[in-house]
């Protein structure tokens, strides 16, 4: 059954903080709910109904394509995202954050041996660390 888009789920007579008019008779709300739906239903003609729909991958592609095209604020955000990712991967990761073990050792055996060396003190070493941190 079609329900008008402006009709609340429960009756207007029941006091509810979600309704347009505050229950306690407070200040007038800033706008009156409009009865018109935001978009009238599209009437498909007989020809439309007979025309084959595009394949699912095509429809998905168009969905994303049209979505990105209609972005406004999102475009600026995507630019920032790409700049951030570029700086992180092309600059920071490449020049300043190499994976220490991956770049210095060629296999897991060597990496394990290196870490084991780090975990076990040198026989001649002294424990002369600074007091506290």
């Amino acid at each position: 059954m079609h329900r008008p888009s402006f009709a609340p789920l429960h009756g207007r007579s029941r006091a509810c903080p979600l309704s347009a008019a505050p229950a306690g008779g407070g200040p007038v709300p800033d706008r009156v709910p409009t009865p018109a739906p935001s978009h009238p239903p599209v009437k498909r003609t007989m020809e439309d109904r007979k025309a084959p729909r595009a394949a699912l991958p095509v429809r998905i592609y168009r969905f994303y394509r049209d979505g990105f095209r209609q972005m406004t604020v999102g475009r600026t955000l995507w630019k920032i995202i790409f700049i951030k990712l570029f700086v992180m991967f092309a600059v920071l990761k490449f020049f300043f954050f190499p994976d220490f073990l991956a770049t210095r050792f060629s296999d897991d055996r060597q990496r394990a041996d290196y870490v084991l060396e780090q975990l076990t003190p040198s026989p001649q070493g002294s424990r002369n660390l600074a007091q506290g941190e």
């Binding site: 955000l77 920032i80 995202i81 990712l85 992180m88 920071l92 994976d99 220490f100 991956a102």
Partner: peptide
């Protein structure tokens, strides 16, 4: 969108500073 990739830096640090 702002938060995207902020966690990636932490992964980088694992490999570099905390090998």
């Amino acid at each position: 969108a702002i938060g995207v990739a902020t966690g990636l830096i932490l992964e980088f640090e694992f490999g570099t500073n905390w090998a």
